[in-house]
Amino acid sequence: MTSNLLIFDLDETLVHATTEQLSRPADFEYAPYFVYKRPFLLELLIAAKPLYDFAVWSSSSREYVDAVVEEIFAGFDVKFSWAVERCIQRVDAQSNGYVYIKDLRRVQSHGYPVERITILDDSPEKIARQPRNHVKVKPYYGLEGDQELLAIAEELMVRSKR
Rank of each mutant, 00 (worst) to 15 (best):
D11A: 05
N4V: 08
A31E: 13
S58K: 00
L44H: 00
V135S: 12
A128C: 12
D11W: 01
E144R: 15
R62D: 05
H16V: 05
H110A: 13
A128D: 10
Y140I: 06
V135Q: 15
Y64I: 05
W57E: 00
A55D: 04
R62Q: 09
T118Y: 08
A83M: 04
L156V: 08
L120D: 03
A67W: 02
M1W: 05
P39V: 10
P50Q: 14
E70C: 03
Y52E: 10
R116A: 11
M157H: 15
K79W: 04
K102R: 13
T13S: 03
A153W: 11
N133C: 15
E20K: 14
K49F: 09
K79N: 08
Q108A: 11
Q108M: 07
P32T: 09
L5G: 01
S3E: 15
Y112R: 07
L51E: 10
D122Y: 02
K138A: 13
M157P: 06
S61V: 01
D11N: 13
H110E: 12
G75N: 05
A26R: 03
R62I: 02
R38M: 07
L5A: 02
S160R: 14
F34W: 12
F80P: 01
A74D: 07
S81G: 04
H110N: 13
P139M: 07
L5Q: 02
D11M: 04
L149M: 11
G97E: 14
F54G: 08
V107R: 01
F76P: 01
E155D: 14
K79Y: 03
A93H: 15
Y140N: 04
M157F: 15
G111K: 01
Y33N: 01
P32K: 08
S23A: 11
S61Q: 06
I46P: 03
Y30G: 04
L156A: 11
L51Q: 13
P139E: 08
K79E: 11
V69R: 00
G111S: 01
S81D: 02
V158L: 14
A153K: 08
E144K: 13
L51G: 08
L14Q: 09
E70P: 03
R62W: 02
V68T: 03
Y64W: 12
P113S: 06
L42I: 09
N4A: 10
L150A: 09
D53I: 02
D27R: 05
N133Y: 09
F73I: 01
K49L: 14
A67Q: 10
L44N: 02
D77F: 04
L22S: 05
S59D: 08
L5H: 02
